[in-house]
Design a protein around this nucleic acid. Sequence first.
DNA 1: GCCAAATGGTTTATATTATAAACTTATTTA
DNA 2: TAAATAAGTTTATAATATAAACCATTTGGC
Lengths: 96, 96
Amino acid sequence: MFKDLDPLLHSQLRLAVISILVSVEEADFVYLREKTGSTGGNLSVQLEKLNEAGYIEIEKGYSGKRPRTLCRITEIGRNAFEQYVEALKSYFKATT
Amino acid sequence: MFKDLDPLLHSQLRLAVISILVSVEEADFVYLREKTGSTGGNLSVQLEKLNEAGYIEIEKGYSGKRPRTLCRITEIGRNAFEQYVEALKSYFKATT
DNA sequence: GCCAAATGGTTTATATTATAAACTTATTTA
DNA sequence: TAAATAAGTTTATAATATAAACCATTTGGC
């Protein structure tokens, strides 16, 4: 009746991050921090989890002399997101 | 940009429970346990949290000689659920 | 009638999580 | 050159979800 919700996406911040990455296809640490309104520390941890799961890839480089961390969603991440949305629907079927 | 997700509803089991109660308007412990596929212990804890928050009311009685715990959603719970659905949409806007 | 199993729950223990505070390193700016 | 800012990471903490263990009652088998 109810589909399981991927615990990796069932987290406010990680969901927000993926939600952004799904549409922009590339975003840096600062952009994500500002758009999600999170603290850097929290973001850092959650990005690492998404990275370990293979949902995103992280590329660390520089913009001028400043460090710059770029994030991109992977195919795995994109699929997981779609599945998550599908799973969620099973919780709202009754309502609609 | 992203609306906060009510932590009380952002939980697989509690969301499933509310999702059921929104449509049936009355359900007992055993029914909820079976439909959600949860353990009784977990269900008991989560029902209590929903009750404390005023999202549901719990009525303990008997069906014959067997104990029977009935649950109903409250107006507060119904509103919270609607808000939760609304909030979630902010995470999927980009996709649609 | 009595013992074993089942029913309907609750309490308690555990392991995971989310989150922010504190910290590091480097770079501007005053 | 000292203070502030920037970009992240590590670490500590508090909250959470979850299931295991438990309790009380009742039913079924002999």
